[in-house]
């Protein structure tokens, strides 16, 4: 499948939106919200990643098999996060005799 022929305007808007998100990230970092700061920063980075993957990497216009690979990567990453965190977060929830 040939790459979609996006216009220069699309690329420019993508570039500007990425810069705006970077500016937003820096701006929000100056407002002290504790751990929320890093959470918001990661969410903004995820938005930037989505813009790059969907438009600049043409993920939005790709074949089904490539979208399957994209979804698979995301799914396996989420499994990695979920299983690891459910272990570490819940370790001290229950008193264990002898510990």
């Amino acid at each position: 499948m040939e790459l979609p022929d996006l216009t220069f305007r699309t690329y420019l808007l993508t570039f500007l939106s990425l810069l705006c998100l970077l500016g937003l990230n820096v701006g929000l970092a100056f407002i002290h919200m504790g751990w929320v700061n890093m959470f918001v920063a990661v969410m903004i980075a995820a938005m930037q990643a989505a813009i790059i993957a969907l438009f600049l990497m043409h993920g939005l216009f790709e074949r089904a098999i490539i979208r399957l690979v994209m979804g698979g990567a995301l799914l396996w990453f989420l499994i990695l996060v979920t299983l690891t965190m459910t272990d570490y977060i819940t370790r001290n929830w229950l008193p264990i005799a002898g510990k």
Binding site: N25, A41, A49
Partner: peptide, 28 residues
């Protein structure tokens, strides 16, 4: 060139997350 572009964009995506976890919490 298309394949190289994919790799380049991916490396850019990774930096976005590295910036978020290492730098952002350091802002005062």
């Amino acid at each position: 060139i298309d394949v190289t572009g994919l790799y380049w964009h991916f490396v850019d995506i990774i930096w976005g997350f590295l910036y978020a976890i290492f730098y952002i919490p350091g802002f005062r």
